[in-house]
């Protein structure tokens, strides 16, 4: 039998929630461990096997000069590199710093800011190294994570669709809450993958999976204004976990510009 592929899980600026999705696999985790050597996963075990690794899952964004170097090292050690979650794929909620002066924030947050070495921006991994696949979500969901690992093991393309959340709502039979209740919803501009959970509980989509393949944010913003959504709420809808993604960032800049 050929040797099992080696898996490494890396953390950058993030909350650990996406890595936890792997531990959250519970029942399937044994099957994963059966097919793959979990060689470097600090959250699960301090027993680390040295690289190189066949598959690296990278969580978190790049916010420090140190991490900017570290990700290059991770890339060098990884045959296949998959970024997981909104931080790694779009910069995460911490990309809100991209709209401000970080030095100013440092002086407010830290007693001795001179000890802090940080970048002015929070950026996705793909801005620093070549990546092989991006798995979206805040957090990612375990079904999609398993699908991606599965596809890697079986040498096939993962079944991860870049279309809107709306298609998932319709497939599960949820009546559109924007049409029926006038609830502001990011679903039409957000990528599917979560299974359209929030609208099925009468909550508008929060946009956790970031922009879908062809996001028309201007048209959605225009309609939401007609629905009476206040400007500050509109901004909040786009200024979340995926604010660093280009089309959401542009939507924010446009709304702020139009507001002035």
């Amino acid at each position: 039998m050929t040797e099992k592929p080696k898996l490494a899980v890396w953390k950058f600026a993030s909350c650990d929630g996406c890595q936890l999705s792997l531990l959250d696999c519970e029942d399937e985790l044994l099957a994963v461990a059966d097919r793959i050597t979990i060689a470097n996963f600090m959250e699960a075990s301090s027993n680390v096997i040295d690289g190189p690794y066949d598959l690296s899952l990278v969580e978190g964004s790049i916010t420090t000069p140190h991490d900017r170097e570290r990700i290059r090292d991770v890339r060098r050690q990884s045959k296949f590199l998959i970024t997981i979650g909104a931080c790694a794929t779009a910069g995460g909620i911490q990309a809100l710093r991209n709209f401000t002066d970080t030095r100013e924030l440092l002086s407010v947050v830290y007693a001795s800011p001179e000890y802090i070495s940080t970048l002015n921006t929070s950026t996705p991994i793909s801005e620093h190294v070549k990546i092989d696949f991006e798995l979206r979500g805040c957090p990612i969901n375990k079904t999609q994570l398993l699908e991606v690992i599965n596809a890697f093991l079986n040498k096939r393309k993962p079944n991860v669709s870049p279309h809107s959340v709306c298609i998932e709502c319709k497939k599960r039979g949820t009546a559109c809450i924007m049409v029926a209740h006038g609830t502001a919803c990011m679903g039409p501009v957000t990528q599917a993958g979560c299974g359209a959970i929030c609208p099925s509980y009468n909550r508008g989509c929060y946009g956790c999976y970031g922009p879908m393949e062809a996001p028309n944010t201007s048209s959605l913003v225009k309609w939401m204004r007609n629905l009476g959504v206040p400007e500050d709420e509109l901004l909040r809808m786009f200024k979340t976990y995926n604010v660093g993604a280009e089309s959401f960032r542009c939507a924010v800049e446009r709304v702020e510009g139009e507001d002035k």
């Binding site: 809107s164 709306c166 298609i167 319709k170 501009v189 028309n216 048209s219």
Partner: peptide, 9 residues
């Protein structure tokens, strides 16, 4: 093109 969300609804 300006209005359609390409959402598939």
């Amino acid at each position: 093109e300006k209005r359609c969300l390409s959402c598939g609804n």
